[in-house]
Amino acid sequence: MLAEVKTRIQSAQHAALRAVNTELVGLYWDIGRSIVARQQVAGWGKAVVAQLSTDLQAAFPGVGGFSIQNLWYMRQLYQEYSTSPKLQPLVGEIGWAHNLLILSRCKDAQQREFYLRMTRKWGWSKNVLAHHIDNQSYEKSLLGQTHLEKTLPRSLHAQASLAMKDEYLFDFLDLGEQHNERALERALMARIEDFLRAMGGMFAFMGSQFRLEVAGREFFIDLLLFHRHLRSLVAIELKIGEFEPEFVGKMQFYLAALDAQIRHKDENPSIGIILCKEKRRTVVEYALRDARKPIGVATYEITKTLPKNLRGQLPSPEAIARLLDKL
């Protein structure tokens, strides 16, 4: 009974916080709309907005949010989103601080939609959201080379595609460019919290060198995670060199064994991520073409980078819109 009541209380608390946030952002939206309307009709300038801030703070002492800067943010929020019916509802579903972060750091409408939807869906904190923006998760998710659309149920495809990236940033590691796979694995395990955050923040750690036994032989998966929202085991193989086609066959074997021996009946099919230092995109495309298991091939970096030549390979705006609509 205690467990049930605690769960109910937590659910009510979360619902109350969501309701308060929705009302707060709605209030700020209305204030921003009023400022824009008055500027258009009466030619309001900076001095009038500053006076409004002073008057509001005097009328509601102890209530934050009415600083001059915040009023200008309210105006900007309304101006940026008032002409986008698709994004307006999303604004009220995440926190004010999250909105300001997206507003200031993202200039493209579809990039903003990505972070608005992902923050709402995965419940990212402000710091996690900032990490994803810094790590260029939007671009890296859309560039991802996977075989998910042909190997996962339609209901999971969009979520899984956006949960996997084309490149992962491990800038928290103290590794030189020359390192072996075991050193990489040990370094990741030593910073497991940072590693899980870099992977996307919705993973639980299941083990390193995870043991499988098949026909009396032992096999070991470098890292095994569990994605909480996808409800899928995620096997990760670490490769310090360039992607080779034979990596796919080995990963398919691991996923088949996981599904047969480890996966629970209420869980979705296991997913594989082959993490390499380098890859040739055409080689990956051919290697995954006839794969029967959901596998993604990504690279890792220990410094922040997204090659400029890859930015031109992002999907078309129409394809991005279709993908975001499924979130």
Results as ranks from 00 to 15, higher is better:
Leu323Trp: 00
Thr83Pro: 01
Arg105Tyr: 01
Val248Asp: 12
Met74Pro: 07
Ala12Pro: 01
Ala187Tyr: 09
Gly62Cys: 04
Leu162Asp: 04
Gly92Ser: 11
His147Leu: 10
Phe220Asn: 07
Asp171Ser: 15
Ala3His: 11
Ala59Arg: 15
Leu225Trp: 03
Phe114Ala: 14
Val297Met: 05
Val284Cys: 08
His14Tyr: 09
Ile302Ala: 08
Asn70Phe: 07
Arg197Glu: 14
Ser316Phe: 01
Gly43Arg: 02
Arg211Thr: 04
Lys150Trp: 10
Asp222Lys: 11
Thr303Tyr: 12
Gly92Lys: 15
Arg33Lys: 15
Leu17His: 12
Thr7Leu: 13
Tyr286Ile: 12
Arg231Glu: 08
Val20Ile: 10
Ala163Arg: 08
Thr22Ser: 14
Trp72Asn: 13
Ala19Asn: 04
Tyr81Asp: 04
Gly216Phe: 01
Glu177Met: 02
Trp96Ala: 02
Thr151Met: 11
Ile9Ala: 05
Val49Trp: 03
Gln261Leu: 07
Gln261Trp: 00
Leu238Asn: 09
Ile262Met: 06
Glu80Thr: 15
Asn70Trp: 03
Ala58Ile: 02
Ile262Thr: 02
Gly176Val: 09
Phe210Gln: 08
Arg322Ile: 00
Pro89Gln: 08
Lys308Ala: 12
Ala97His: 06
Met189Phe: 09
Ala47His: 05
Ser208Arg: 13
Gln57Lys: 15
Gln178Ser: 10
Leu148Arg: 03
Ser232Lys: 03
Leu223Cys: 00
Ala204Trp: 07
Thr151Trp: 01
Ala47Glu: 15
Gln10Leu: 14
Cys106Glu: 12
Ser208Asn: 06
Phe247Cys: 12
Asp55Lys: 14
Gly26Leu: 08
Val214His: 14
Glu237Asp: 08
Gly62Tyr: 09
Glu218Phe: 04
Phe210Ile: 00
Ala42Leu: 15
Ala163Asp: 10
Ala183Glu: 11
Tyr254Ile: 06
Phe195Gln: 00
Leu225Asp: 06
Glu193Phe: 01
Asn21Arg: 13
Leu255Gly: 10
Phe210Tyr: 14
Gly92Leu: 14
Leu233Tyr: 15
Leu103Cys: 05
Glu113Asp: 11
Lys86His: 04
Leu258Ile: 04
Leu27Gly: 14
Arg197Asp: 12
Arg191Met: 06
Arg112Lys: 15
Phe172Ala: 06
Ile102Lys: 01
Phe203His: 14
His131Asn: 09
Thr146Ser: 13
Phe226Cys: 11
Leu87Glu: 10
Arg18Ala: 11
His157Thr: 12
Arg211Trp: 01
His179Met: 06
Val297Pro: 04
Met1Gln: 06
Asp166Glu: 13
Arg280Ile: 04
